Amino acid sequence: MIRLVLLRLSAFVLTLFAASVVLFITINVLPGSAAKAALGIDATAQAIQRFEAQNGLDRPLFVQYLDWLGRVFQGDFGKSFQNGVAVGPELLKRLPVTLELAVLAFIIANLIAVPLGAWAARRHQRATDRSVSFLATILGSIPNFWLATLLVLIFTLKLRWLPPGGFTPLSVNPWLNLRQMIMPALSLGLVSSALLIRIMRASMLEVLSTDYIRTASAKGAGGMVVVFRHAMRNALIPYLNVAAVEFGFLFGSVVVIEDIFLLPGVGSFVLVGIINRDYPVLLSAALAITVFVLTVNLVVDLAASLLDPRQVKARNA
């Protein structure tokens, strides 16, 4: 088990390093000028030159990367080109908002996907199975920003049940926080559940066709007992791997949703950085999302290894 953890941690570090290189190069070679975005379209050539020299943008790209990486290791994520605000503290302040949104959306997606996928597999090639597959197709074809707009139209403008946006910390007012976060979470979670329903259904179908499940059924075990006591654990192993990736997509796809609902999270921070060509903001936000996604994948990968009966048996041997 220790060897497995060390291997996964080594892969984590190497992947994070490669991702940081790709992020830095991609952001810096995109068309546009950070100096012009910060100084305005009327900035003179001398002012642009001075700005680039002050911020190290006139140096070779690999020198800029090494300097940025060294500062990141020291906990310094730089200052925004637009307002000079330190990026690190601002990112830490916004991270809980995005994390709460992603977790709520993930919970919603799994509450839909796990029971529906298992139910569809249990009722394979029947009306229930076809209905669930059709629902997954519909949910998967809906853009989350369109669904967000529809939810605002129904629950805010028509029914007046929920506020249109904004954010109140959970510690200040839990009820208001939930009312403000439910529509953004539904916008992401409903769309995300489409893929997870298919994965859960496919995984459960594979497990239900195995010999030990047929044996359990032949011994008189009820349908629900077979599904939830015997099949669910093995079906969750491939499902968890895909769910971890999907959670990463959720965390990284909050940009538009946070903008629609006026949530002060990492996603809206990224959007501001893109609009303003603010390299420190973009790099820090993108790196934070990357670290979070890789961490989740690492934890789920280890959890899946613990759940796998074959590896459990090997460790106990």
Rank of each mutant, 00 (worst) to 15 (best):
V227M: 10
R233V: 10
R233H: 07
P238I: 00
R201M: 08
V242M: 08
I213V: 15
L240Q: 00
L236Y: 00
H230F: 09
A202V: 06
R214N: 12
A218K: 05
E206N: 13
T210N: 09
Y212A: 02
R214C: 08
V207R: 05
A221C: 12
M204Q: 04
L208V: 09
R233K: 13
H230R: 02
N241K: 15
S217G: 15
D211Q: 11
A216D: 04
G223Y: 12
G222K: 12
V242F: 08
G222S: 14
I237T: 01
N241T: 15
T215K: 07
V242R: 06
T215V: 09
S209D: 14
Y212V: 07
V227W: 01
P238K: 05
A202E: 02
P238D: 08
V225Q: 14
A216Q: 05
I237A: 03
T210C: 07
L205Q: 14
M200K: 00
A202Y: 03
V225D: 13
L208E: 08
L205M: 15
G222T: 09
I199E: 07
T210A: 11
I237L: 04
Y212K: 01
S203E: 10
A221G: 08
M232F: 15
D211W: 01
V207C: 06
Y239N: 03
K219R: 13
I237E: 04
V227A: 01
I213P: 02
R214S: 12
R233I: 09
M232R: 08
E206P: 00
N234D: 13
S217I: 11
L205A: 12
R214K: 14
L208K: 09
L240S: 07
V225C: 12
M204G: 00
F228V: 07
V226E: 14
A202S: 15
A216Y: 01
L208F: 09
G223N: 13
A235F: 05
S209C: 08
E206S: 14
A202D: 06
A216V: 10
M224Q: 14
V207Q: 00
I213E: 11
M232I: 08
R229P: 02
S203V: 03
L240A: 09
L208T: 09
Y212T: 06
A221F: 15
M200D: 03
M232T: 11
H230L: 06
G222R: 12
A235K: 02
N241S: 15
E206Q: 13
S203W: 04
Y239D: 06
D211E: 14
M204S: 03
I213Q: 10
E206M: 08
K219D: 05
L208M: 13
H230E: 10
N234P: 01
R229F: 02
R201A: 06
V227T: 11
A221K: 12
I213T: 12
N234L: 10
V226A: 12
L240M: 10
D211L: 05
S217C: 11
G220S: 05
S209N: 15
R214A: 11
E206C: 02
V227G: 00
N241C: 12
L208R: 09
N241I: 13
S217V: 12
S203T: 01
V227S: 00
F228K: 07
H230A: 05
L240D: 03
V226G: 09
R201F: 07
Y212S: 04
S209T: 11
R233P: 00
K219P: 01
V226D: 11
L205P: 15
V207P: 06
A202K: 04
L240R: 02
K219H: 07
V225P: 09
